[in-house]
Structures are given as structure tokens and as C-alpha cells.
């Protein structure tokens, strides 16, 4: 079966002062139909850059991005336009994702209208159905974004992304701007929608507990490269990359008994700059296990058990 998304040796470099910023370097992964892949990492690791490239918002410096078998790298405007109907995006901040002067009915209906999928009464019915699907009422269609709370606005953004029944939903930190009590509502909604539509999802987040909750498989990025890609249960039960272990140890669990008994794996140091990444394994400057080979040779992603790990020592 064709993967919904297949990324091969993706590179995204940007001009910087002097050396180019290597935001994404040699990243490869795929997402099967109906599968949700979590892409996790800290700020500057390149996860959002990858997300933007999967919907054609950024052109790859090198490598390939295929959505449902169609190549996006170097694609012409017509191909990009066609593929964007199949790959839709939900951004972090629902406030800036919606036009304040457009009713939410118009916003949700716009993709259908632009693509000539529906108009008139049929469009209104489709919008009403989409609103109900995300837990809002059809009569909300005539209201403006400011009349909704943050959580409701994220529901509106999700409804708009679902309008064209995309094969791939790309969610970039969809709950990070929301309050805790609202976050749960949106996570429940996303899990429900995945089950109902068998949609593939690329779920970008810095929050490992959230990713564990909604994803089937998880890819961990560090400074532009993949550190580890593994099925969810394997990754959380047996993290193989030292960075994955450190990241998991750093998640503060909302339970003092668990949290305070946790062994600390303090990562010393700061995240280096992607303009001047460390030689060899990019994690070696902070890795408690680093040896000479780590400083000199770039570790390739290789299969270890159920996981793919880019670590000489795994």
C-alpha cells in the first residue's frame, strides 16, 4: 500500500550569517494510511520545518516528500495545489489561524467553495455537518472568531482542515496554546476523528505525554536529525537513544510520588546552534555516553529490535 506520506533524505537549509542553517538534515520516515506519527523534539530541532515541508509550504533543499505517491519537491503549482487538498494543516495558535473578519461558517466553507466541491445550500449543509463533527453547533456558523474561546477556535480550525476530507492531517503543536482543561477536549476530539476517518496524522509536539496519548509511532528529532523512530510502546517502554531517555526523564509527571522517585538523567549544557552543529553525532556535546566515535562519525539510523536508532552505542 502506498504510504500517505513518505519523506526520504529530506534536507532543508536556510541562508544564515556565513554558514547555512541546517534546520533539517537527512530526515526519512513514512506514515501509513490511518497511522498517526508523533514528531517530537525541543525548540530548534526542525520539527515544524518538516511539518511545513510536508504540506508544500517550504521547498526542500534536497530529498523527497511524497504525499500519496506524488512528489512535492520541485512540483509545479498545479501539482502542489492538488496535493494540498489532500494534506491539511492545523497550527498551534488558533487565534492567528482564523481571519477575524470572516464568519467561521465562511472560513470552514472556503476550502469547499474554492475547490468547487459544494456551493449554496449544499455548502451550508456541509459546514453544518463539519461544525457538529467537531462539537460545535450549526448555528455558530454566522459568528466571528472573537466570539469563541481558544478551545472552540481550535475546533473551528480542525473543522476547516477536515472540510476536504484530507488523507493527511498535519498538526503542529495543536494543543500547546490551550489551557489544561481545554487541551483534554481537543485531544479527545483528535483521537475520535482519527478513529472515524482512518486519517493519517503527522502530530508535531514538544510534549511527550501528549504524543504518547495520540500517536501510534513516534519520531524523535534532535538538531535537524532523527535520533529514533519507533512504535509508541517500544519507544516509551524501551527508549534506545540516550536523547530519548533524557527527554523522557525530563517530562515532569503530574504526581509527586512518581516524579520525585524518578531517576534524574540531567542533560548538561544547552542545545547547540543548527548553524554550527557539532561534528559526528549532533547530540554528543550533551550525551552522557559520548565516546570518540560519536565525535567523529555521523550515526546512521539503523534497526535495533522494533526501533530505528541513530546512535553508535545503541
Amino acid at each position: 500500500m502506498t504510504p500517505t506520506l513518505e519523506i526520504t533524505n529530506l534536507k532543508l537549509h536556510f541562508p544564515g550569517h556565513g554558514a547555512p542553517i541546517r534546520a533539517v538534515d537527512d530526515v526519512s520516515f513514512s506514515i501509513a494510511p490511518g497511522e498517526t506519527l508523533g514528531l517530537v523534539g525541543e525548540s530548534g530541532c526542525g520539527k515544524t520545518t518538516v511539518a511545513n515541508a510536508t504540506v508544500g509550504l517550504l521547498a526542500p533543499t534536497a530529498g523527497s516528500v511524497r504525499v500519496l505517491g506524488t512528489e512535492l519537491a520541485g512540483a509545479d503549482a498545479t501539482t502542489l495545489r492538488a496535493i494540498r487538498a489532500r494534506a491539511q494543516m492545523v497550527f498551534q495558535d488558533p487565534v492567528t489561524s482564523l481571519n477575524p473578519r470572516m464568519t467561521i461558517g465562511t472560513a470552514i466553507g472556503e476550502p469547499l467553495l474554492v475547490r468547487k466541491v459544494a456551493r449554496g445550500a449544499e455548502l451550508r449543509d456541509r459546514v453544518a455537518a463539519l461544525l457538529e463533527e467537531v462539537g460545535l453547533r450549526p448555528d455558530h456558523a454566522n459568528r466571528y472568531p472573537h466570539q469563541f474561546s481558544g478551545g472552540q477556535r481550535q475546533r473551528i480550525v480542525i473543522a476547516r482542515a477536515l472540510a476536504l476530507r484530507p488523507a493527511l492531517l498535519v498538526c503542529d503543536e495543536p494543543v500547546s496554546a490551550l489551557d489544561v482543561s481545554v487541551r483534554a477536549q481537543i485531544l479527545n476530539l483528535l483521537v475520535e476523528l482519527q478513529a472515524r476517518h482512518a486519517m493519517s496524522t503527522l502530530f508535531v509536539s514538544h510534549d511527550l505525554a501528549v504524543v504518547r496519548h495520540v500517536c501510534d509511532r513516534v519520531a524523535v528529532m534532535y538538531l535537524g536529525r532523527l535520533a529514533e523512530v519507533a512504535p509508541r510502546d517500544a519507544l516509551y517502554a524501551e527508549p534506545r537513544h540516550p536523547y530519548t531517555r533524557a527527554l523522557l526523564a525530563a517530562v515532569p509527571e503530574p504526581d509527586p510520588a512518581v516524579q520525585r522517585a524518578k531517576p534524574r538523567v540531567p542533560l548538561s549544557g544547552e542545545i547547540p546552534s543548527p548553524a554550527n552543529p557539532p561534528s559526528g553525532c549532533r547530540f554528543h556535546t550533551r550525551c552522557p555516553l559520548a565516546t570518540d566515535i560519536c565525535r567523529n562519525a555521523v550515526p546512521e539510523l539503523r534497526q535495533v529490535g522494533e526501533s530505528q536508532v541513530a546512535c553508535h552505542l545503541a
Binding site: G151, V180, V182, L248
Partner: peptide, 25 residues
């Protein structure tokens, strides 16, 4: 109690429904 139950944890069942506080502040 609801706030605590609404937070995804590393120990819960993936994709299980999280507790929800209806409405808004």
C-alpha cells in the same frame, strides 16, 4: 480532581478518553 484527570500521563492508556471539564472559565 478533574484538572488532574484531564492531563495525559506517561502511565495512562493511550487514546483513552481524558476527563473533560465542560464549558469554559
Amino acid at each position: 480532581a478533574l484538572l488532574l484527570a484531564s492531563i495525559p500521563r506517561l502511565s495512562d492508556v493511550p487514546k483513552s478518553a481524558l476527563a473533560v471539564i465542560e464549558g469554559r472559565v
